[in-house]
Amino acid sequence: MELLLSIILGLMILGAIYALFARDLMSALISCGIVGYGLVICFLLLQAPDLAIVQIVVETITLLIMIAVVLDSSREELKEKKAAEVKLSHFRKWYVMNVILIIVCLVVLLYFFKEVTSTLDPLGKHLTRMSTAYIEYAAEKTGSANLVTGVLFDFRGYDTLGEATILFTAVIGVLTILRVKGKK
């Protein structure tokens, strides 16, 4: 399964890199879609159907909105030649320095990553007492057959209340900026 996960992750990385360099904005959007839908398959492989449902719906909606925006404006990238050239020459001057810095950072990060992962349990084996207690007693204490809903609305009820409030406040902010009166 780890091999399959790494293949999908590689595809996602390729899609993200292509989205950066694509000439047509529509193809950039579609290659962004590769990242989102690849993530859905990753969630399904890691046995998280709740997350997979949320991710597939949200990804579709985001893609729809972005495509509508691109269709309304223009499909081509704006050309800002001078700024790009200045940045490119600046990049060439510090070329060696940049590469050395990236390699040093990579080595340091990989070292600490190895140190940390050697002390952790493998993926999927939980460590804490609380999660074990949740899995054992959730069904009889909340009466909900779906463990995720039981945790969301019973054990972590305040969390859900906060999330709903945040969403409410965010939409009020959006409506304040984008209201009909402010558009004119």
Binding site: P49, D50, V57
Partner: peptide, 20 residues
């Protein structure tokens, strides 16, 4: 929602998608 996978946030997105 309390029996099968999928909770309130997924459902909100699905219903909003129908209206979209």
């Amino acid at each position: 929602g309390h029996l099968t996978p999928g909770g309130c946030f997924a459902v909100g997105a699905v219903i909003a998608g129908a209206f979209f």
